[in-house]
Amino acid sequence: MTMPLPKSPATAPVTSSAGASVAPPARWPALIETLRDIAARHPDAALASSLAAEDMVLTHAIFGAGLDLGIFTLDTGRLNAETVAMIDRIAARYGRAISVVRPDPRAVREYVEANGLNAFYESVPLRKSCCEIRKVEPLRRALAGRSAWITGQRREQAVTRGELRESEDDPVFGLRKFNPLAAWTHDEVWQAIRAFGIPYNPLHDRGYPSIGCEPCTRAIRPGEDLRAGRWWWESSDSKECGLHAGNLASIPVSVVSIKTP
C-alpha cells in the first residue's frame, strides 16, 4: 500500500511570485473523489499517461492524494527528449516512479525494414500500423489482467471526442475505461497546473497543446484546434492512433494524403 505524501500537494495550492495563492479549479475536489471511487471499485486500475498536461494533472491528483492506482507511460522510441525527461521529473517531484512500457523491438525493426523509418507519412494504414506496433500493442500488454484504465481525454480536444463519457465500457480492450477530465476545459487544466505547481512538458510553452511522437506532432498555429498538430497531414476526424479507437465508432472517417517529405 502506498502511503500518502506529507502535506499532500493535491490539497495545498502554491503561492505565486506576487505572494498570492492561486486557486485550484472548482472541479478539483470532485476529481479527487472520482479517483478515490475508481480506486475503491477497481484497485487494479491504472492511468495511461502521455506525460502531457492532462495526464500530469491526473498524476498529481493520484500521487498527491496517496491513491494506490498505477501509472504507466508508453515510450514509443520516437518521443521528444522533453517528453522522455518527464519520467525522471515525476520521480523527483513525487518520490514515486511510473512504469514505462516499450514496443517489441523486433516488430519495430520489421516495420522499418519493410516500409522505411517514416512510412507513416505515406498513408493512414501505414501510420496506423506504426501506431499499432509502437503504442497499441504495448498498451494491450500494460492493460492485460486489469479491470479498468484511466485516461486524460477531454471532450473539447477533438471532434472524435465530442461525445466522450466520464465512464464507459471499452470495446477495444475489454475493460472499463474512465475519463475523469472529460468535461474539463483547457483553462481548467492549466488552472490546476498553476495552482499546484504541477510539472509539465516544456513543449506546451512552445505551442504544443497535444504531444505525441516527435515526427507526428507539430506546434499549432493561431486559431487551430488543440489537436491540429497531431498527424497534421490527415483530416481532423481520423486523428486517433488506436489507443482510443472507440472514439471513432460513430464518426465517418475521411483521409487526406500527402507525399513523404
Rank of each mutant, 00 (worst) to 15 (best):
D169E: 12
G212D: 05
P24N: 09
I38L: 04
E224H: 09
V136I: 12
V112W: 02
A114L: 12
S238M: 08
H60E: 07
P4Q: 14
C130D: 08
F178I: 03
W184I: 02
A45V: 04
V101M: 09
R134A: 07
N115R: 12
D44I: 03
P43F: 06
F72I: 06
A85V: 07
A26K: 13
S210C: 08
L181S: 05
P9M: 11
D104Q: 11
A219R: 11
H244C: 10
V253C: 10
V22E: 03
V100L: 06
P180R: 09
V84R: 13
T34P: 00
E224F: 10
P24Y: 06
L243W: 00
P43I: 08
R230D: 05
I150L: 04
R221M: 14
A45R: 01
V14H: 09
A39S: 11
V172I: 13
A245I: 04
P180F: 07
G77P: 05
E166I: 05
R227H: 06
N115A: 11
L175E: 01
W28T: 05
S17C: 06
R109S: 14
D104I: 09
H60K: 09
P222M: 12
S123P: 02
V14I: 14
S16Q: 09
L79W: 00
V189R: 00
D237I: 03
W190H: 14
V100W: 04
A40K: 13
A52E: 12
D68V: 09
T59L: 09
T160A: 12
P138R: 03
A65H: 02
G77I: 08
A142L: 07
S236L: 14
P9C: 13
T73E: 06
Q157P: 01
I87S: 05
S49V: 09
A48D: 00
W184R: 01
S147K: 12
G66P: 01
L248G: 07
N80Q: 13
E137D: 13
A48E: 00
L51G: 01
T217F: 04
L175M: 15
R134E: 10
Y121Q: 14
S147G: 15
Y121D: 02
R161L: 08
R36N: 09
A195T: 05
Q157W: 03
F173N: 04
L203T: 02
R78V: 07
I211W: 02
A52F: 01
G207Q: 10
D104Y: 10
G77E: 10
R161D: 07
V172F: 04
P24G: 07
L117S: 10
R221V: 04
S21T: 15
A144S: 15
Y200W: 05
Y208H: 14
S49Y: 06
W149N: 01
S123E: 07
S250R: 11
E110T: 13
R165A: 15
N247S: 14
V256S: 14
S123D: 06
F178E: 00
E33C: 08
I71L: 07
R141I: 03
M56L: 15
P24T: 07
R227L: 10
L51I: 06
E54T: 06
A10I: 03
S167F: 06
W231G: 00
G66D: 03
S21A: 13
N247W: 00
T76K: 03
E132R: 15
W149K: 02
P6I: 10
